[in-house]
Nucleic acid binder design. Structure first.
Lengths: 156, 156
DNA sequence: CCTGAAATTATCTTAAC
DNA sequence: GTTAAGATAATTTCAGG
């Protein structure tokens, strides 16, 4: 399933603005509306485009503080641990990783008091947790890259 | 700028599906179309809703490998370092952090050979870099939470 | 704040080249 | 791959409570 240059451009445009009309999209990539529409539907059906989401501002929603937590757990507890991580609203993202810890959690809180409570009362009490190491996020350098540009850059 | 329950529900629905029609949105939150439309436009104008983006599948785009890189730099080089991080297509996200390192970079590559090249030839050659520590992402546990649900949970 | 309706655009389908 | 036309459904504006 190789990705054509036109598909890549369509993806890049929709990554920036998911509400661009088919007319504008088609004109920008140099296609007429019908084939452009067909390609977008195909990209959705293949699962390359998973959906369309509003990008919301965490600070604007009152979450002034974000942190990264490395978590080590007892290996046999991975299943309930992961379930609760997925269910916890203040865990923004979570990855299983190699290295010193087993997971990296990106968490949010309204302020330092709330972060302290979240770490001591909730994160460190999750199933199987043996150790946490927390780093504060002091600034966001880059929020999300374009997979379309990454794809072009990587020569795929 | 306090957020009403209705605004919060609108945000939650648009986080899941940015292409929901105003008619459906309005019906779901129990409003008629015009006030619902006005609220969405106000949320966009305030910057609470930053935009609408297609969610693209990294693996589908050929990026089978992701990694987290802790980066330490010489402090006086922070500006060119951050500029190049922002410009690099294979850096998916970047945060400035407290702790042992100065930054955490989330990077992508097509395969191990490409990751090796990216780390040795590009990331570690960025301006001012003195040290990198890389952890592979072995699995995604959670991709992005709902800020609407987080807001409700936090009692804001 | 809300309702409802009208004007304008966009989506999606269909047909034909 | 293209154009074009038309039905449906959406967005956006506006008059009025």
């Amino acid at each position: 399933m190789t990705i054509s240059e036109i598909d890549r451009r369509i993806i890049g445009l929709l990554e920036r603005d998911a509400r661009m009309s088919f007319a504008e999209l088609a004109e920008t990539v140099g296609l007429s509306k019908t084939p452009c529409w067909n390609r977008v539907k195909a990209l959705e059906a293949e699962g390359l485009i998973r959906g369309y989401r509003a990008a919301v501002d965490p600070a604007g929603m009152g979450f002034g503080i974000e942190a990264l937590v490395q978590v080590s757990i007892r290996p046999e507890m991975f299943e309930p641990f992961e379930r609760e991580v997925r269910a916890h609203p203040l865990v923004r993202r979570a990855h299983a990783t190699t290295g010193e810890a087993d997971y990296l959690l990106h968490i949010m809180a309204a302020d330092m008091a709330a972060l302290d409570r979240l770490l001591r009362m909730e994160i460190s009490q999750l199933p199987g947790v043996t150790r946490t190491v927390t780093a504060m996020i002091t600034r966001d350098i880059k929020s999300e890259n374009s997979l379309s540009e990454a794809h072009r850059h990587a020569g795929l």
